Amino acid sequence: MSEQNISIEEFEKKYVARLETRKLDYNALSFQEQISPHYRRAQCRYIGTGAVAAVDSNVIQAEHFTLSNMYLPAGCEGPMHLHEDVEEVFFVIKGSVTARVQIGDTIHELKLGERDCIWTPPGYYRGVRNDSDEEAIMAVMLGAAKPQIPTYEPGSALENLRIERAKAKAAAAAAEQQK
């Protein structure tokens, strides 16, 4: 429900996110770099925090989706991953990327340039790779205020790491409840 009785200053403070106040967060997905340095990338959050980000009080609080910019260095990639609960959009702002989507047992690659976009429904493995010599910047939108943490290909090093991290987080939460 919209708030119609607030000042423009309050509206701006609550609903406007400016580039000058954003920070590139190379730590949001740094756990993936434990598997490969090619997974290095930064998230710059605007609306919500996405599926894996820590708490960020500097974002517009989402009600139905998240929006961030992903900075993908030359030669790096966002690994194949699965969101069972949300659709995901990659919109190329700068540079070019290779979008990857798995249909059945086949991974298809689609080249995307500036202002190209791919929408992936829930239930498809998807990823992106920067094959160029220049940084690429994409807008990334997920269709929920707090999406579930994505999964990776069964048996992969990333999926095994995700499982280990989930167990450690659950153990820490259980220990905290016992205090």
Rank of each mutant, 00 (worst) to 15 (best):
I6G: 01
E12I: 07
E87F: 12
A144V: 00
E33P: 03
R45W: 10
Q61T: 06
L19M: 07
R162T: 04
S132H: 07
A173F: 01
L72K: 00
Y125W: 07
A99K: 12
M80G: 12
E114N: 08
I60C: 03
Y152C: 05
G155R: 03
D25P: 02
N5I: 05
G113Y: 02
A175P: 06
G155C: 09
Y15Q: 09
H64C: 03
L110W: 03
N69K: 11
C117F: 07
A145S: 15
F31W: 08
S2G: 06
H83W: 10
K13S: 12
D25M: 05
N58I: 00
K179G: 15
I47Q: 00
A144S: 14
T66A: 03
S68L: 08
M141G: 03
S96E: 11
A17G: 03
M138I: 11
G50I: 08
R162C: 04
H108P: 00
I35T: 12
N58K: 06
R18P: 02
E159D: 15
I60E: 04
F65M: 14
S68N: 09
T151G: 12
R165G: 00
E135H: 06
E134K: 10
V55M: 04
K13P: 13
T106Y: 01
K167N: 14
R162Q: 14
R18G: 11
T151S: 15
I60H: 07
F65R: 02
A136E: 00
S96M: 05
A17V: 14
E135G: 02
P79L: 05
R45S: 10
D105I: 06
I47A: 00
A139T: 15
E20W: 01
A99I: 10
P150L: 05
R45I: 01
H83P: 09
Q177G: 01
A17D: 03
V52S: 05
E87G: 09
Y26W: 15
I103Q: 15
L110C: 12
V16W: 07
N160A: 12
A144N: 10
G155S: 03
D105R: 08
L82T: 00
Y124E: 01
Y152Q: 05
L24H: 04
L142G: 00
L142Q: 15
K111L: 12
P37G: 01
W119D: 05
V140G: 12
I6E: 14
E87Y: 11
L142E: 07
S57N: 13
A99M: 08
R115I: 11
S132T: 15
F90M: 13
I163T: 14
A28R: 02
K169Y: 02
E114A: 12
A172N: 13
S30E: 06
A74Q: 09
A175Q: 11
D85A: 05
E114P: 00
G113N: 06
V140A: 10
I93C: 05
G75H: 08
E114S: 04
E135V: 13
D133M: 04
A170E: 14
T151Q: 10
S156I: 10
R162K: 13
P150Q: 01
P73M: 04
V55G: 08
Y124H: 08
A172G: 06
G113A: 08
R165Y: 12
P154T: 02
N69V: 10
A170S: 12
A51Y: 09
E12F: 11
V140H: 05
A157G: 02
A173T: 07
E176L: 14
G95D: 13
G95Q: 14
A51R: 04
E134Q: 12
R18S: 07
